[in-house]
Nucleic acid binder design. Structure first.
Lengths: 166, 166
DNA sequence: TTGATTCCCATAATTTTCCATGATATAAAC
DNA sequence: GTTTATATCATGGAAAATTATGGGAATCAA
């Protein structure tokens, strides 16, 4: 399954309409079992992540994988209850329209402070939707984290390992 | 798996189109599980490498290994989220066109100061794309480092040792 | 009936696809 | 080992398709 990659900045109009970047649409299409050429793919938006000022978009295939992981946790365990709540009550099933757009309800826009512009960020099996300024801050935070925890070296040693795994 | 080797300088037109050197295409084809004769291979461009004024190209096979290493970290762990962000948001999935070209989006060209010409540099399991002048400077830096510390001999004796240990 | 939501159409800008060509390179023939 | 044919490469231009975005009519809900 291909992954969400890259960043894109799109306009949000006062009806809440935003284009999903074309590259992301392709991934949503591939990940939607009900999709076939000519149809509009579906996705799931998860909005309940605290300490995170962004929305998260999953293809149908990806969200099913996450759902199944949760189902495998012990029933009534604390973790499972929390995840179930997060993933089920704080999420939304959406279908792209004919033009490749979705409508972000006002409630969600307010939640993540999105007004006229949204940044789409590829995160592999999911993507994030940010207010542009908040995204920049978050990136800066990550940069800082990287240098402090020496994670960058770790990442690139992972990259270096590519050779060894062959 | 064969490796990216050698240097090549190609034109970039104002749409951002560049030919991938034919030799590199062969490696991309071999490294793309979906590729078969007649099709155009895919690759992933990583651009978010700080302190480096170049882009990096990976075959699908190589980048998948890296992706899987990250996927093995606990889902939603801080570490994983950071690495996912770096790896996925600062990269791009691209398919070669019928003529063996890719298009480098303006954003990436600006990032590495590429205008009318790009230098492709084989780096084994990946390749780099440079602005010609920046590439020369980087090479000079390496040369300088080598001669100042008489590193070259040392490096090659390092290689000799590796060989003996195998 | 008034505000919101959905659907349909319009369009400029961008991106992709297709075709053409001179330049290299590779192979074949003598 | 030249010369000749054949294929592939790098590059440019233009047509065709897609994208991102806006506006308005139709529909719905309170």
């Amino acid at each position: 399954m291909r992954r969400f990659r890259g960043e894109a900045e799109n306009k949000v109009d006062n009806k809440g309409r935003v284009s999903i970047p074309a590259a992301f649409r392709r991934i949503l299409e591939e990940g939607d079992p009900d999709w076939s050429s000519g149809l509009n793919p579906n996705l799931v938006i998860v909005y309940g992540r605290r300490n995170r000022k962004c929305l998260e978009g999953y293809s149908i295939g990806s969200i099913e994988i996450v759902d199944n992981l949760v189902s495998n946790l012990p029933r009534y365990s604390k973790e499972r209850e929390i995840l179930e709540r997060l993933l089920n009550s704080q999420s939304l099933y959406i279908q792209l329209d004919e033009n490749g757009r979705i409508i972000l309800p006002l409630k969600l826009r307010k939640l993540v402070e999105i007004q006229t512009t949204a940044v789409f960020v590829g995160m592999g099996e999911k993507f994030q939707i940010w207010n542009p300024t908040n995204y920049i801050s978050d990136m800066n935070l990550i940069e800082k984290n990287l240098s402090e925890n020496n994670l960058e070296e770790e990442l690139y040693s992972l990259l270096a390992n590519v050779k060894n795994q062959n």
